[in-house]
Design a protein around this nucleic acid. Structure first.
Length: 155
DNA sequence: GCCAACGTTGGC
DNA sequence: GCCAACGTTGGC
């Protein structure tokens, strides 16, 4: 059971939006970066834990948890000419982009700010801090333990 | 909203 | 297959 960090811009799709989807969850689509795609397609599994991160907004940080409902499947948006995620170079027999379904589990009563993560010596190796521009990224078991401690009593 | 960093595209 | 131009991400 792995831990992942999924970034989202709350102006586009926030944890509140995810919560409104209930147990049916939401399709996490529109991933158009090969490194993120490879992680989604090859490593993200049903039952994994997703830490939702709000990026490009006033309150940057981890805002809650979600469950992965399905292993990756081809993102239908890549074949929809009306979609902003349409990719004319992707064919039906060789899908280029993948997505997963996730369901809201919990919203933290107080977010874990990016600044707090940056300050903790145990979290300096987080992909979040090491590498920008990656919207799907792994969180190690040790990192997750630190983060989980911070959420205790916050649910 | 700015802009640095970085991934992608496409001409050569 | 190089690399300049371009587009996007994402913290500030």
């Amino acid at each position: 059971m792995k831990h992942w960090l999924f970034k989202t811009e709350p102006d586009e799709f926030s944890i509140e939006d995810l919560q409104k989807k209930g147990s049916a969850g939401a399709r996490w689509d529109g991933i158009r970066n090969y490194q993120a795609r490879n992680l989604l397609r090859d490593e993200v599994a049903e039952g994994d834990t997703v830490w939702i991160y709000h990026s490009r907004c006033k309150h940057l940080g981890l805002v809650g948890l979600a469950n992965v409902l399905s292993a990756a499947y081809p993102d239908p948006a890549q074949w929809d000419p009306e979609s902003p995620y349409f990719d004319p170079k992707s064919s039906l027999d060789a899908p280029r982009w993948y997505c997963v379904d996730v369901a809201h589990r919990e919203t933290f009563s107080t977010l874990i700010p990016l600044a707090k993560i940056k300050r903790d010596p145990r979290l300096q190796e987080m992909v979040l801090l090491k590498q920008g521009r990656l919207s799907i990224q792994p969180i190690t078991e040790a990192e997750a333990k630190v983060l989980l401690k911070w959420t205790q009593g916050n649910a």
